[in-house]
């Protein structure tokens, strides 16, 4: 069950795993996530599915080692098994032909962005990808993005690759250059907050894929709740994608820190 068939390091902290999960590979769509638990006493954490191969019966997960549980997953090797893996969870991305779509990803959000880029491109949209990273070594999936989009813009904080600047600078350049019909963003909450504020200014509909604290991932616990348009929503069953302009990112950022002091 859930055997790891391949492992690749995107950077010292970011690992790509291909995992046996034939049922999930068959039923997943862009935007879906899984819950992963490693070890008998492991924690259940959500990970967005970065891809799937229905013939091999595998799904792809890209994990950044940030906390104890994500580190444990990154330490697994080919042949090891993920103790528990369940999904696909959440609502799939709503894909349609809208015209020009900016897909903006930062950090580990780049990996789950790939299937969305593919899907929008297949649906006949002009897709422009903006990839943001602190420095050149942390830029991932550039080739795969290029193969599935019309243009890839790279932004680095230190200017070591692509253009120096933040993801928002990259997006704004495109908006000033051509008409954009939709923006999709996945990345750290703080990044999505600023992307959302920017596109709101230009009145460009924007979808953000949120990654919050979860336990069961099926709507049972409510740990993932956020406020969207003044109403409480559960990221696990109502999301993970929401109208970014309606999301209370400050509350979300606050809630993400809930277990900072007690994390084991």
């Amino acid at each position: 069950m859930n055997k790891i068939v391949s492992k690749e390091y995107f950077s010292p902290q970011v690992v790509k795993l291909e995992v046996e999960a034939p049922l999930i590979a068959r039923s997943r769509k862009a935007g879906h996530f899984v819950i992963v638990k490693v070890g008998k006493k492991g924690e259940r954490i959500p990970l967005t599915i970065a891809g799937a191969d229905t013939e091999k019966g595998t799904i792809t997960l890209v994990i950044q080692a940030v906390g104890n549980s994500s580190k444990k997953i990154c330490e697994l090797n080919v042949g090891d098994e993920i103790t528990d893996l369940v999904g696909p969870l959440g609502q799939a991305t709503h894909i349609e032909k809208v015209g020009t779509v900016i897909c903006a990803g930062g950090g580990v959000g780049v990996a789950p962005l790939l299937p969305i880029v593919e899907a929008f491109h297949k649906a006949g949209n002009r897709v422009i990808v903006v990839l943001a990273a602190r420095t050149k070594d942390l830029v991932i999936l550039e080739d795969q993005m290029k193969a599935n989009s019309d243009e890839v813009v790279i932004m680095t904080d230190d200017g070591s690759y692509g253009t120096k600047g933040l993801v928002t600078n990259g997006i704004e350049n495109i908006i000033n250059r051509e008409k954009v019909d939709l923006c999709v963003t996945i990345g750290p909450a703080i990044m999505m907050k600023f992307v959302s504020a920017l596109t709101k200014k230009y009145e460009i509909p924007t979808v953000a894929s949120l990654n919050t604290i979860m336990v069961d991932g099926t709507g049972m616990c409510g740990a993932c709740r956020i406020t969207v348009g003044g109403k409480t929503k559960f990221v696990c069953v109502d999301g993970p994608e929401f109208d970014a302009h309606q999301v209370d990112f400050d509350e979300m950022l606050m809630r993400l820190s809930a277990y900072k002091e007690v994390e084991k």
């Binding site: 049972m220 616990c221 409510g222 740990a223 709740r225 509350e251 809630r255």
Partner: peptide, 16 residues
């Protein structure tokens, strides 16, 4: 204030 840190459902608390 129901979304403040430290406020949770009994499902979450008991499941943990």
């Amino acid at each position: 204030g129901e979304n403040l840190i430290g406020v949770m459902s009994s499902n979450e608390y008991l499941t943990r």
